[in-house]
């Protein structure tokens, strides 16, 4: 387990070793403000809460998560450091978990950086900070699921652009499965069991619950099983593709 944290620490330091992290954080915070106050009609709603922000979080993550996850393994494979990492005395799951954990940590930093929104609603009114806290945790769980998926996609290719585009497409399916736009399309091309499976994968349904300050056990199970599944898939993909 110590190795997981050593890898996560190195990886997280790696994010901040380049300007990319700061560019990412600044744009994420600016866009968070834009969606909350502009698209979310914050002032017209007349309610001091952050639901205007959290309604848009899945759509922000749809683009921002693949931007973080695309480099996780594609870059290691391209630069050859994957050979160094995998010949150190660590197991593949330690490497995969460590790097994923760092990416979750980075997104957590991005969420913390949206604190001006929280200060604003507390200044303007008397919001339920418990609901806000649960909503943030829900957003982080959604990010964790999408990052685990992005990690797997990134292990597939040395090309970060391909990793980004594929991750956006799969993230779209994960977030929106269960909505008519996805289910109708799947129904047209796949049998019912697959339609049901896609519907059950819907992250949006679970995420909406946390936006109301409500954490269902099924949502916790969903998030954990999705993360475990995608990280396990990453280990498998990496074992087969690392030397290509």
């Amino acid at each position: 387990m110590a190795n997981v944290f050593t890898i996560a620490k190195r990886e997280l330091a790696g994010y901040f070793g380049t300007p990319i992290a700061y560019v990412f954080l600044v744009i994420f915070v600016i866009l968070s403000g834009v969606v909350t106050f502009h698209l979310g009609n914050f002032f017209a709603r007349g309610s001091a809460d952050l639901s205007a922000f959290f309604n848009y979080v899945p759509w922000l993550l749809l683009v921002f998560i693949p931007a973080v996850s695309m480099r996780l393994w594609a870059e290691e494979r391209k630069s050859g450091t994957v050979e160094l990492l995998m010949t150190l005395p660590i197991s593949p799951w330690e490497a995969v978990t460590g790097k994923w954990l760092a990416s979750v940590g980075f997104i957590a930093v991005a969420f913390v950086a949206t604190f001006p929104l929280w200060i604003t609603v507390n200044y303007l009114g008397d919001p339920d900070n418990g609901v806000i806290m649960v909503s943030y945790l829900g957003a982080l769980a959604l990010a964790a699921v999408l990052l685990a998926m992005g990690s797997c996609v990134s292990a597939f290719t040395k090309n970060q652009v391909i990793a980004f585009v594929l991750a956006v497409a799969i993230a779209f399916v994960i977030v929106t499965s269960g909505t008519p736009i996805v289910l109708d399309t799947v129904r047209a091309i796949a049998p019912k069991p697959i339609v049901d499976a896609v519907a059950a994968m819907s992250a949006l349904t679970h995420f909406i619950g946390t936006g109301q300050g409500f954490v269902a056990l099924s949502s916790v199970v969903y998030a954990i099983s999705m993360v475990v599944f995608w990280l396990f898939a990453t280990v498998i993909v990496l074992s087969n593709k690392k030397a290509d």
């Binding site: 070793g17 630069s79 010949t87």
Partner: peptide
């Protein structure tokens, strides 16, 4: 256990460039 006793320099000496 095997890797603990091994020092390996991969071809091209890859390392994390930002470190």
């Amino acid at each position: 256990a095997a890797k603990q006793n091994l020092g390996y320099l991969p071809e091209g000496a890859p390392a994390y460039g930002e470190m």
